[in-house]
């Protein structure tokens, strides 16, 4: 077996530094950290830049991780790409359920709405793409968090604000709810963000089975639920649509 290749080890060390806290470093800083000559570091950076793994900031001249590398990262999926790939399935879900559909991704511990399909009844509705919702008071947020253990671990007691009397504000109760969601594969929220409305969501996974987003339907409690329980056919619709998008993204069919 041949020995390890020194230049690849050095390139890996540079990438590791650039993925750290500072994210943007100059040649001299990198050379100092790694105790290597600046010329050596510069040569490696030039190569990494050529393959798209790093890019140079024009103003500061410093280096940062490049888009090609971000694409290879575990859970990176462009939200605009997700919307494009999910469009037909989201339309189909709105048609079948008769309710509005949203697709969300995690963004700094909130849910970023990347796609919104109106409820198909031609009433006046405003597009919510780009808006942010709380993770713990939406089905989308719960579906997203249930599959990101490391984020759940960061939740501090008292960090969950209340929106209605039904909002889950207790961290321990929230964590056990997320465990149940991870088990059964779908999430529900009943009157926890707004009085009288409910939402049902399921995760969207990519080909590595990493959760890259979630898709939900939302509407009045009396339409979506029997009592406090979501209606089975709505849960099925949401699960089927999110699985279809997952398949579209290359997840293994199941």
């Amino acid at each position: 077996m041949p020995g390890r290749i020194q230049s690849i080890e050095r390139a890996a060390a540079i990438l590791r530094l650039l993925s750290g806290r500072s994210r943007r470093l100059g040649v001299a800083e990198l050379a100092g950290e790694l105790r290597l000559p600046k010329g050596t570091v510069y040569g490696i950076l030039r190569t990494l830049q050529a393959v798209g793994f790093v890019e140079q900031d024009r103003d500061s001249g410093k280096y940062q991780l490049g888009p090609a590398l971000l694409h290879m990262g575990s859970s990176y999926l462009d939200g605009n790409e997700l919307r494009t790939r999910a469009l037909n399935w989201a339309d189909g879900l709105a048609t079948r359920s008769g309710e509005s559909v949203r697709i969300g991704t995690l963004h700094e511990n909130q849910v970023l709405i990347v796609h919104h399909v109106f409820r198909p009844d031609d009433t006046h509705q405003a597009l919510e793409v780009g808006s942010l919702l709380p993770v713990h008071a939406t089905a989308l947020g719960k579906a997203l968090l249930a599959h990101h253990d490391y984020l759940v671990a960061e939740l501090a007691p008292g960090s969950l604000p209340s929106y209605t009397p039904a909002t889950v504000t207790d961290v321990y109760r929230f964590r056990s709810e997320l465990e149940a969601i991870a088990q059964r594969g779908w999430a529900v929220e009943v009157g926890e963000l707004f009085h009288g409305s409910a939402s049902i969501a399921a995760p969207i996974e990519d080909r590595r089975r990493v959760t890259v987003g979630a898709m939900s339907i939302a509407g009045p409690i009396e339409r979506l639920c029997d009592g406090r329980q979501p209606r089975a056919e709505f849960v099925d619709y949401v699960m089927e649509a999110s699985r279809a998008v997952s398949r579209e993204l290359g997840a293994i069919p199941w």
Binding site: D91, A94, H116, V117, F118, P120, D121, D122, Q125, L127
Partner: peptide, 10 residues
């Protein structure tokens, strides 16, 4: 016409 529904409006 009854089959046409608005999915989004800008």
């Amino acid at each position: 016409r009854k089959n046409w529904h608005r999915a989004a409006e800008w």
